[in-house]
Nucleic acid binder design. Structure first.
Lengths: 235, 235
DNA sequence: AGAGGAACCTGATGTAGATCATATTTAATA
DNA sequence: TATTAAATATGATCTACATCAGGTTCCTCT
């Protein structure tokens, strides 16, 4: 569908918002972007601060979190190679409404606000790609919303494991899928709106039932079919 | 900020995605759109069906719902004049992932897929407006997600009332704000992920505490400050 | 390597809110 | 306007999950 132009400085990424530009146009983008490295735990931006551009993830994984009045933190989104973050606040709010933190060492391109607005005005393919990303994220968010209302923790956990399996899964030689993402149980818990103890209990259940396996923090999916059943997905 | 061009056929709406086009361009849009009327309860589109264009709401209120495996329905978004719906699935999915239903008699413009894609390619202001709408909706969705995790029902209800007060509130002569939107308690409950009995209980509490008042389905905000306190908003 | 602190795990207990039941009010329809 | 159905309201009960508490294992840092 798309004709990916290799992005010189983001080698891993052929699914970014600029992927349909010509090499000449790409060079222009390259001139206006900066590559930053973030170590695990470092923040790209913080809730409440002023946005001044967008971030395009090259490598690594970023969590987008919101903290409430009581200081409790929830992960509302996970981003990785090819994803953009910080665009939402750029186009609407005065301040960031969430915090973005690297959950592992990551490389992230930063693009200045003025330049990205210029590109959007000149290159429809870029706007369309941004609209696409936003639409996809929006779909995921609404899906989570209804799950929180309609499903119990066990079902939501099964669903989360399947989602992570799709987004961060790596097929192993033995045919099973390894979720290539090191989240703490606490972090996973906030993704499905539960307490870490509860999450751990259900992970243990799934282990006992041989649906999944754990090697350190890493989770391996043993039985995707059964997990799909338990996730109780709409038709 | 914007220079609203009056949309002939959507008189109520100066905040739509086409509001920055010239009158000539507007005429072109008008030629390619159809106005449809929907009675309360009628659906614009149904989860699972194929999208073939986008809907721009002229008047009325539309609820966007998702039904789960057990048939339980959750409202994930409310739309009214100036909002667009059905765009998300248009740009990403093969099928609609939600159902849109009129919660009161509404007038909605329909714009063909090919034409809207053409406009996006030619008019950056339109893409930017779509990006804006998506970003705003996305922000709301993520905010709801963290609320569901971090707040109890009473807090979420206070928050919902404040949100509805902003989006659908009408200042009365007596200075109080009337929420101009006829939702059933059941519908309101699904918006904050609770059971209708529970929601009704907390509405009663707020009534007892004179924070709100009810005239039929309509809710009137008596004490916005106290409600804001109870909502326990992040800083 | 060894100390200290997270993160992980499991059991016991408490509770917010779901569910069930039923009465009452409101709204739709004939 | 009568009839019926749907929405609202409130009480009683039950349960899924949060919270608390304790132990163990895994990291990280010096």
């Amino acid at each position: 569908m798309k004709t990916p132009t290799k992005c010189e400085k983001c080698p891993s990424n052929s699914s970014g918002i600029f992927c349909e530009l010509s090499s000449l146009e790409h060079e222009d983008v390259d001139k206006h972007k900066v590559i930053n490295k973030y170590k695990k735990g470092q923040t790209l931006f913080v809730q409440g601060n002023h946005p001044f551009g967008i971030f395009c993830i090259s490598t690594g994984n970023i969590k987008v979190t919101k903290v409430g009045a009581d200081g409790k933190e929830s992960i509302v989104r996970l981003c990785h190679g090819g994803d953009i973050i910080g665009h939402r606040s750029l186009f609407t709010e005065e301040h960031y409404t969430a915090t973005a933190t690297a959950i592992e060492d990551s490389e992230v391109c930063f693009i200045d606000k003025n330049f990205i607005l210029k590109v959007i005005n000149e290159k429809p393919s870029v706007s369309l790609n941004i609209i696409n990303k936003l639409s996809t994220d929006m779909g995921k968010a609404e899906s989570k919303l209804s799950s929180l209302h309609q499903k119990n923790v066990r079902e939501r956990l099964a669903e989360l494991l399947l989602v992570l399996s799709t987004s961060h899964g790596k097929k192993q030689e033995d045919g099973r899928t390894k979720i290539d993402l090191k989240l703490t149980r606490e972090e996973m818990a906030t993704m499905i709106g539960t307490a870490n103890e509860t999450l751990i209990r259900f992970i243990s259940e799934f282990k006992d039932e041989k649906l999944i396996e754990q090697v350190g923090k890493t989770i391996i999916i043993n039985n995707e079919e059964k997990l799909t059943e338990w996730a109780n997905l709409p038709y």
